[in-house]
Amino acid sequence: MIAGGEDHPVIRVSGLRTRFGQQLVHDGVDFSVAKGEVMGLVGGSGTGKSVLLREIVGLMEPTEGRIEVLGRDTRQLSERERIALQARWGMLFQDGALFSSLTVLENIQVPLKEHTSLPRDLIEEIARVKVAMVGLGPEAGDKYPSQLSGGMRKRAGLARALAMDPEILFLDEPTAGLDPIGANAFDELIGSLQKSLGLTVVMVTHDLDSLYAICDRIAVLVDKKVVVGTIDDLLQQDHPWIHDYFHGPRGRAAGAARG
């Protein structure tokens, strides 16, 4: 959605704590995402990246803290307000999470039929436009998820996440499981959609190339907290994990590729 400039951040997380039984996963996480920004979320395995993402979109409840999305405190919403707010973001799950009994086109039409009263032919055409926008051929629309490859399922999942023209796009490891060429193409796709649709993107990723290619800023989960900065900021950081992450062999290779 392209709209007039708004200064307050699209997402603001403050004082977030998450506890599973004895285990403290997040201890005072603070960060915010500005409008039109692409924010990468990285961290070692088990540091709670996916948990943080699931808390922001309301699939999980944090133990403590405040999460504001589009200026609304997500924990203080009534059911109806929550549904209205949810229609303004889209989420791409790791393996697409498409409904297996529906074709790709029907999958994309689900939110449109549920939340709008548009005429059928317009909904159908919107769905076909989304299929084309994510770079799938027109024949893919009539296929079932089990007939698609992993990369195509991700694209179809992205099309469904974009069905309602959301303002924010959440991505959970968008390039995991894709070959390098497919991953590059997916990065480019997200970058170009982000520009043409004016999206704010939050992505959990392990893919250093993605971080270099499309992320404006990166939030690193270390020591149960978040360190936020641009890649150049983080390259200067001397925290051992962050240093190893960006200066390790893969980090150097990705950095060198950037030139």
Binding site: L122, I126, D165
Partner: peptide, 10 residues
């Protein structure tokens, strides 16, 4: 003032 895919499609 604003346009999204659905509007553009219309």
């Amino acid at each position: 003032t604003a346009l999204d895919t659905a509007g553009a499609l219309v």
